[in-house]
Write a protein that binds this DNA or RNA. Structure first.
Lengths: 186, 186
DNA sequence: GTCTATAATACGATAGAC
DNA sequence: GTCTATCGTATTATAGAC
């Protein structure tokens, strides 16, 4: 894939992570990415919706991979997820309270406004839920429990990121880590 | 308080709930609220940041009251919170997947961009956490546990709302309700 | 593929009359 | 308190040269 195209997508992810969909302009993306200005509509002829959809999906795939890798470091599901969420808390603080991905903001802003971007957000969230679910399956949870808890963990972590980003502190995520461990250790 | 001023705040809440902070224009607020156009900067001389800060805080107070009222219907904390979250699931579906308040979107979009709006979002989230915490205190949880779980419940519900809004289904919130009940029944 | 220039529109904010 | 008009600057998107 072209380097310019890839650079545009990565810059879009970074900017929308900080300021959301409507808060990020195409001119800003072109400027910060260093991409040739004329090439934006060459690579993305359907405009902002296309760029955003592709950026969100790419970000979802990357996050799902990070979840898989993070969870593989520990054979116990409860401890693996606990430690993984603690790592997110650390990353949120180290990055001056970035969200980690553009998904949350973009999903909320566009859920009932753009069918195309909403579809990309659904797919991205499915990848995250599945990543948690598969760890639970490996660790002996039933299929039903693994699915339910995959959704619940995704929700709790997502909410923890919002609170940590808002409070400018990793502590809410640390609470999420702690009580997810309790729930999963039952 | 003036009716026009109040109408502007409520319209702001409704629009930002659907499309976030940057996605909502002041002209749009004026138009939809039916407020006299010239009165916007009369009531809110500091502009969009002031309107948004006040709208977020007002919405937080309203949501906290709804939590208090909702939880008061049941003397058992686990069951009260379970039923309350089920109610949110129903409301999200009945409202065609509205977020219930502008807080999530606005908090994510402005966390590192506007000190003033961020302060309002912090205060709003504190009110929500406290509402859950006080129910747990009433039901015999220790102060520490009540505080920790107040944060955890807020995060899980917030994440559930994001997923339900994105998937256009109340089911993720129903999963949150179910597993919060398990956690709180221990 | 990349460029500049620009169309058409929206934005937040302000001025000044009444 | 409310009005209209408008400033200056963004926005997304397109046209046409190279």
């Amino acid at each position: 894939m072209s380097n310019t195209r890839e650079q545009i997508l990565q810059t879009t992810c970074g900017l929308m992570e900080k300021q959301g969909y409507h808060g990020t302009g195409l001119n800003e993306i072109v400027k910060e990415s260093g991409a040739p200005k004329g090439s934006l509509y060459h690579y993305f002829p359907e405009g902002k919706e296309q760029i955003t959809s592709e950026a969100v999906l790419q970000s979802g795939k990357l996050t799902a991979t990070r979840i898989q890798n993070g969870l593989s470091e520990n054979s116990n599901a409860a401890k693996a997820i606990h430690d993984f969420v603690l790592n997110i808390a650390h990353h949120v603080e180290a990055s001056e309270f970035a969200a980690g991905s553009p998904l949350t903001s973009v999903a909320m802003e566009t859920a009932t406004k753009s069918e195309r971007i909403n579809a990309a957000c659904r797919e991205a969230y499915s990848l995250l839920e599945t990543a948690f679910k598969e760890k639970l399956l490996e660790c002996g949870f039933t299929k039903t429990k693994a699915e339910e808890l995959g959704t619940f963990i995704t929700a709790a972590v997502e909410g923890g990121i919002i609170l940590s980003r808002t409070y400018h502190s990793g502590d809410p995520l640390r609470m999420v880590a702690k009580h997810l461990k309790v729930l999963l250790s039952q």
